[in-house]
Structure formats: structure tokens, C-alpha cells
């Protein structure tokens, strides 16, 4: 069987469509993950034992079990819990984004926690001694500084998440990898097609890496904190 590179060229637009969906799924999961991550990080640092224990349990579960299993748990589990007779149209997208968001929330929680803890205690003390509440100190003093320090690890997490979104092919979401697989099934050209798929992933992860580097430069110019 000879290699047919024309297959790649012919299917560029379809792959691009898959890549776009991959980006959208990742963006959705990132949005959910950042929100969950922020709350879980704060809960993890709470003075209340129950709140802290809840956050630890959440983080342990989602970091300690495979994303693939979590995708199935959400995709099949929610309809069972809610006793749905049939799955709504396009439910797989909701389930896929949710599963990835829940998963990345655990990782992002740890990133934010480390960022918050890296800020000198004196910053909180200065803010509190000026009469700010704990929440005000967090919002105006701690989080803006912590956020800047979390940009590099957050970039890593976003890149990992984008690559992991290929797992969503398992619930028939036609993202980049799934699209590539379908085309291979039709054309019997695995090497050129999967190379093309890999290249698409590479371009997207590079874009994230560049964006992270840019943010780092932009936010870093004012101070060394």
C-alpha cells in the first residue's frame, strides 16, 4: 500500500473543522475548570475543616482516576441519575465539556493553591491591618499577584487539556482525532492522516504556548513580584 499524501490535502478542511471543535471543547472545559479550580483552591485553604476535607476529596478523586473513566461516568451516569428515558440531542458535547472541566478543575485548584501560598504572608497582614476583610485582601492583593505566578503552570494545564480532549472521541464527539480516524477508515492512509492530525495538535498547542509567553511578558513588565 503506497502512501498517498493527496489524502491529507483533500481532507484539510474537514480536519480543520475537527480542530475547531477541539478548540471549542477545550475552551469550554478551561472556563469550567478555572471557576471550579478557584473555588476549590479557596476551599482547600479554608480554616474550616469540613470545607477543606471536601476540596481535598474532590481534588483526590479527579486527579486520582482516569479522565476516560470520568468521561464515561458523566456521559452515562448523569442520564441514569436523572432517570432520562432518552439522551437529549448533542448531549455528548455537554457531557464531554463537563467531564473535562471537572477534571481540570482539580488540577487548576492545585495550581491556584500553590500560587496563593507563594505570596508572602506579609501581603495579607498588610491588607488586613488596613482593615480589609479576608475576601477583600484576596481579591485586591493576593489573587492579582498569585494569578500572575500561575500563568506558566496554567499554560501547561491548558495544553494537556487540549491534547486530552482527543479522549472525547470515545463518546462520538467529532473532534480532531475522531475526524482523523474516520478519514483513515475511509482512505486506508493512517500514516499521512495521523501525521496531519498530530500537526494540527502541534499548531494549536504552540499557539497556547505563545499566548502564555505573551501574557507572561505583558504582566511581568511592571514589577518583579
Amino acid at each position: 500500500m503506497g502512501m498517498n499524501w493527496h489524502v491529507v490535502v483533500d481532507n484539510m478542511p474537514i480536519l480543520a473543522k475537527g480542530a475547531l471543535l477541539t478548540l471549542e471543547l477545550t475552551a469550554g472545559a478551561v472556563a469550567i475548570g478555572v471557576i471550579i479550580g478557584l473555588f476549590m483552591a479557596l476551599a482547600r485553604l479554608s480554616k474550616r475543616k469540613v470545607v477543606r476535607a471536601g476540596a481535598i476529596a474532590y481534588i483526590d478523586f479527579f486527579r486520582g482516576t482516569p479522565l476516560l473513566v470520568q468521561i464515561f461516568l458523566v456521559y452515562f451516569g448523569i442520564p441514569m441519575l436523572l432517570k432520562w428515558q432518552t439522551m437529549p440531542d448533542n448531549y455528548q458535547y455537554t457531557a464531554g465539556i463537563l467531564a473535562m472541566g471537572l477534571n481540570s478543575g482539580a488540577y487548576i485548584a492545585e495550581i491556584f493553591r500553590a500560587g496563593i501560598q507563594s505570596i508572602d504572608r506579609g501581603q495579607t497582614e498588610a491588607a488586613r491591618s488596613l482593615g480589609m476583610t479576608q475576601a477583600q485582601a484576596l481579591r485586591y492583593v493576593i489573587l492579582p499577584q498569585a494569578f500572575k505566578r500561575t500563568i506558566p503552570p496554567l499554560g501547561n494545564e491548558f495544553i494537556a487539556l487540549l491534547k486530552d480532549s482527543s479522549l472525547l472521541s470515545i463518546i462520538a464527539i467529532q473532534e480532531l482525532f475522531y475526524t482523523g480516524k474516520i478519514i483513515v477508515g475511509r482512505t486506508y492512509q493512517p500514516l499521512p492522516m495521523y501525521l496531519a492530525v498530530a500537526l494540527y495538535y502541534l499548531v494549536m498547542t504552540q499557539l497556547i504556548a505563545q499566548w502564555v509567553a505573551y501574557m507572561e511578558r505583558r504582566l511581568g513588565k511592571n514589577d518583579l513580584g
Binding site: 508572602d120 506579609g122 497582614e125 498588610a126 491588607a127 491591618s129 492583593v141 499577584q145 500572575k148
Partner: peptide, 15 residues
């Protein structure tokens, strides 16, 4: 609010 404090290490907000 009524008691100001100045620290050994300044603790200015760097951002």
C-alpha cells in the same frame, strides 16, 4: 481601620 501598622519589611503591594 483605626490602628495603622508599619512593618519591618514594608509589605507594599508590588503590583
Amino acid at each position: 481601620r483605626e490602628v495603622g501598622m508599619v512593618f519591618q519589611r514594608f509589605n507594599l503591594f508590588p503590583h
